[in-house]
Design a protein around this nucleic acid. Structure first.
Length: 233
DNA sequence: GCGACAG
DNA sequence: ATCTTGTCGC
């Protein structure tokens, strides 16, 4: 476990945070396919909070993409760096997540985030932000549709429909509602950095042989909760 | 102006 | 995210 400080110059207001997103958005790489599913490493990252005690715990769990076995894991503890504001989630999670990733003894490979990438009010969600800061290929797999709309995918696992964002001129496809378990609420996949949407969905399916949510984020979720307990609660 | 809104 | 008991089911 490592301890982190809030970076100097970290945004203090919503306006400052939005300005950072507008500035970094141009650095997102969208013309790469990303690593093939089932090869190399896939890393899940997640964060747990104790707002009362001002503690945040992050975890990064590296899986072998072929077997989904845990290869390595790391945690980090920090102070809460930003309140939860829809559209500004990254500023609350990133400092501690970066520290957890840095503490890993091996290459993370593809990073799977618990949230959105391109599917974001300014097209720069947590997965995009983390990708730009690390240079790693990233995708976002969220459990809720946020402000976006979608048609219900067909019942079978693997079925998908477009995730739409409302724009001034109409609608824009920002991701996909993907059924990872037959007849169960879909997850919402979007591109982060250096990965195509098709590949992001293929990875998500490879990571969900048994549960709706990717094995990577399930592992990271359990680990960061444990780290938070041991650090605070 | 009011409500909704990833985690 | 987090607060929280039991309960139905494999």
């Amino acid at each position: 476990m490592t301890t982190v400080r809030i970076p100097a110059g970290w945004p203090a207001t919503d306006d400052q945070a939005r300005a950072v997103q507008d500035e970094l958005r141009g650095k997102v790489v969208l013309d790469e396919t990303g690593p093939p599913p089932g090869t190399g490493h896939v890393t899940g990252v997640d964060v747990a909070y104790d707002d009362e005690r001002d503690v945040v715990a992050a975890a990064a769990v590296v899986l072998d993409a072929a077997t989904l076995d845990v290869v390595a894991e790391a945690t980090a503890i920090g102070r809460i760096s930003f309140p939860y504001v829809p559209g500004l989630l990254a500023f609350r999670e990133i400092p501690t997540v970066l520290a957890a990733l840095d503490a890993l003894p091996c290459d993370p490979g593809l990073v799977v985030c618990d949230g959105y990438g391109l599917a974001h009010p300014r097209r720069f969600g947590l997965a995009s932000h983390l990708g730009v800061l690390t240079g790693l290929p990233t995708i976002g797999v969220a459990k809720n549709p946020f402000t976006f709309t979608y048609d219900e995918p067909d019942t079978p696992r693997g079925s998908a429909t477009p995730l739409h964002a409302a724009t001034a001129s109409g609608t824009e496809e920002v991701g996909r509602a993907l059924r990872t378990r037959a007849g169960v609420k879909p997850v919402f996949v979007s591109v982060g950095h250096r990965v195509s949407l098709d590949n992001a969905c293929a990875h998500t399916l490879a990571l969900t042989p048994a549960y709706r949510v990717p094995e990577s984020t399930r592992r990271a979720d359990a680990l960061c909760r444990r780290a938070l307990r041991e650090a605070a609660g």
